[in-house]
């Protein structure tokens, strides 16, 4: 299997706070990798480095064969069109309707698309998350679960090869969290995406994870499948699986 993301010796610190220390990880194509870690352990920093929102202090981040820190704005945009990112707070644009939110990445990354193609893609994305009726609603009218689904639809509308999820189930009730997790798994299968999922929700992890990376104290503490890690006797790992 091809490696789509290859992170080597990644370090990032904010002042005296060393968030990532010589972090190494590989993501294979079609793999759903969960990064487990405590709050403030630098999980979000990791995926923001991958998408180029945060410049790492040192290390290589190879995404689809290109080293992210070396890219200029234009090249970065090309890579970003192939990588989806689901934000923790959804990041739906308040000033726009659901349709405009979904159209936004299309019109930005695929400026050549005609109106009809855009409409078809928007419709498809909404069907994927089962919220066709919300198309002309404002984002402020949506519930938390609906917002997450729309955000998911927006993340997937460009049919990315890699999707980065930043705590997709945080702030949702268990039932909705489970629905979202299932949806993520199904859509990953449908579009054959590789994904990195930041989470500390074990229910979600159980559903989506092919492989798990434990991020503790800024480096990769352990990795394996859910079953493997669940059987581990390490105290720090056991903390998560109780």
């Amino acid at each position: 299997m091809e490696t789509v993301i290859n992170i080597q010796e990644l370090s990032k610190s904010f002042g005296s706070n060393h968030v990532l220390r010589h972090f190494n990880v590989q993501l294979k194509q079609g793999q759903n990798m969960v990064v487990l870690g405590k709050s403030g352990s630098g999980k979000s920093v990791l995926i923001k480095c991958i998408i180029g929102l945060i410049q790492p202090d040192e290390g290589k981040i190879s995404v689809l064969g290109q080293n992210i820190p070396d890219l200029d704005h234009h090249e970065l945009d090309t890579i970003r069109a192939r990588v989806g990112f689901l934000f923790q707070s959804n990041a739906l644009y308040d000033s726009m309707s659901v349709r405009e939110n979904l159209e936004f990445p299309l019109r930005r990354h695929r400026a050549t698309l005609g109106n009809e193609q855009v409409n078809a893609l928007v419709k498809e994305a909404l069907e994927n998350v089962g919220l066709e009726h919300t198309i002309d609603m404002q984002t402020s009218e949506l519930s938390g679960g609906m917002k997450k689904r729309i955000a998911l639809a927006r993340t997937l509308i460009l049919k990315p090869e890699i999707v980065l999820y930043d705590e997709p189930t945080t702030g949702l009730d268990p039932i909705t969290a489970k629905e979202i997790s299932t949806l993520m798994r199904d859509l990953a299968k449908k579009y054959q995406t590789s994904s990195i999922i930041i989470s500390h929700d074990l229910n979600c992890v159980k559903i989506v994870a092919d492989t798990i990376v434990m991020l503790i104290d800024g480096f990769c503490y352990a990795h394996g499948t859910y079953e493997e890690l669940g059987k581990s006797q390490d105290i720090k790992i056991k903390e998560f699986f109780e």
Binding site: L53, A81, F87, S89, A91, F104, P105, R108
Partner: peptide, 14 residues
């Protein structure tokens, strides 16, 4: 605060 600015950036928008 709600990462909309980041979202724009990853959506190919400066």
């Amino acid at each position: 605060v709600t990462e909309q600015i980041d979202a724009m950036e990853v959506s190919g928008t400066n």
